[in-house]
Design a protein around this nucleic acid. Sequence first.
DNA 1: TCACTTTTTCTACATTTTAGAATACGCTTC
DNA 2: GAAGCGTATTCTAAAATGTAGAAAAAGTGA
Lengths: 110, 110
Amino acid sequence: MLTKLEEFILLSVWRLGENAYGATIFRYICDTTGKNLSLGGVYFPLERLTHQGYLRSYMGITTPERKGLSRRYYKLTPKATAALEELRRINETMWAGFPDWAASVQSISK
Amino acid sequence: MLTKLEEFILLSVWRLGENAYGATIFRYICDTTGKNLSLGGVYFPLERLTHQGYLRSYMGITTPERKGLSRRYYKLTPKATAALEELRRINETMWAGFPDWAASVQSISK
DNA sequence: TCACTTTTTCTACATTTTAGAATACGCTTC
DNA sequence: GAAGCGTATTCTAAAATGTAGAAAAAGTGA
């Protein structure tokens, strides 16, 4: 099963689209969760997920007029999309009916 | 931050109500996720969560006419409820707009 | 008493996370 | 053209967490 961090990383890659690389993913997760991750704690799972076939990565070759080391960008593979959809279903079942959840989900009235 | 297992354990305790003890929690999570957890992998975090103040536990003293070791029941503390509500908010933000999610959530049209 | 069922507890090992230091690269400035 | 700065990635060691399964506990029934 994907860990929570892996789940969040995959979702971040999906959401950031063309702009998904280590540093932006790190910042996005920190901002959204309000927690302080460590940088290493995002780069390491990125590699792991790539090895496991959830992500494809490629070096940024375009527009090299910016400062710094060249970026390594990430994209979801179909395997990742499938895993996320399964996870979404599991999450939905687990959380169904939890107080306050009702406010944003249809067809649960309690 | 709570791990995924801890999240699922807390949700199971909430859902199982008066019937939340190690073995039922274990079975509920296995059934819902379709994964094979190990038993030890549920008892250990249960103790951890209790120590950290997310759960209160008490031994089952009622109706001792059943077989087996006496059960240790669990209940959520207010700290756990608060953590779950925060997590729900984070999850909602992370998952908002993800394909297929739309089917069960209001006001997302894409 | 012995075997059986349900449940918890324990142990050893593998994986994942945390925290932060080290390294890389390309501008800019002196 | 060397030094410093900002953006990024890579690496390392320690701590926390998860996996797998064996062992133990307690009551029931043969």
